[in-house]
Design a protein around this nucleic acid. Sequence first.
DNA 1: GCGTGCGCGCAATAATCTTGCGTGCCCAAG
DNA 2: CTTGGGCACGCAAGATTATTGCGCGCACGC
Lengths: 152, 152
Amino acid sequence: MPKTLDDIDHRLLALLQQDSGRTLAALGDLVGLSPSAVQRRIDRYRETGLLRREIAVVDPSSALLAVCLVTLDRESPESHRSFREWVQAAPEVQQFYNVSGDHDYVVILATSGMAHHRETAERVIKNAPNLRRYSTMFVLDPIRTTLTVPTR
Amino acid sequence: MPKTLDDIDHRLLALLQQDSGRTLAALGDLVGLSPSAVQRRIDRYRETGLLRREIAVVDPSSALLAVCLVTLDRESPESHRSFREWVQAAPEVQQFYNVSGDHDYVVILATSGMAHHRETAERVIKNAPNLRRYSTMFVLDPIRTTLTVPTR
DNA sequence: GCGTGCGCGCAATAATCTTGCGTGCCCAAG
DNA sequence: CTTGGGCACGCAAGATTATTGCGCGCACGC
């Protein structure tokens, strides 16, 4: 782990989470460092695991998103384990959270349309082991879709 | 809009959504094209808006994630508009969806800890205009966090 | 059969990334 | 107060990667 992140680190990480397509020189201008200094900081983020990877973001409005709230039948560790494995195997599962509260899991499905959604919900959720019940909320408008996380 | 995406386009987009850090040559090897052909296809995705941007992904386990289900007080267009503006102004709002069903919105908050979460929930949700009620589910384990969307 | 358009590979050029090196700063030990 | 080590920086050379002009071949429609 790096000791602590300074102000430049936070600014850099915010910029990278917003748009990592920038050149090292552009980033350097924005935070007041040389390209190589920026480079070395980014290397450090990667080494420490703070920065996982870079991804391209596809326009989400071309897809059908659905938020599913899932409750399991039993609370045994084994029941959770098999459920997780089952759901994780599906590529349509965009996000998958274990949560506190009335439900056990939140699953966000990304499909190409209602036909695909039905098929996927059937296969991934309805057929999941230890499922008690679930409800689905369809996304009418994906107002904001980021993975941005605060760094301080 | 491009006429239609062929099989190579789909493979390319899947690879880019998974990891856009690869070189054009590496992508070319994976899909069977020259670097410049890959380049031109990616340019097209960008021009047509299919590809929005590239982002760096920060390890989500270093943050506190919370899924909030929100119901508004009134259903008037004006009520929705002001609520959206209010919520969108907060940087802690990682994702923001208008959904069908019992609730109106799903908001995913990313904060640096419980203190930050409380402050944020107070400011962003509780003080939001036209709020009727909301519930919060804390993320115990972010099993999968992507923005991957199917392209076919 | 014959143009036309489109996407491809190749190759030269431009841009960006990468890395070794020397410098200055800060902190801790003497 | 001085000295030495560690660390991050900027600079610049070299390597890698991205960009773009060019000519070719294939498919489609006339």
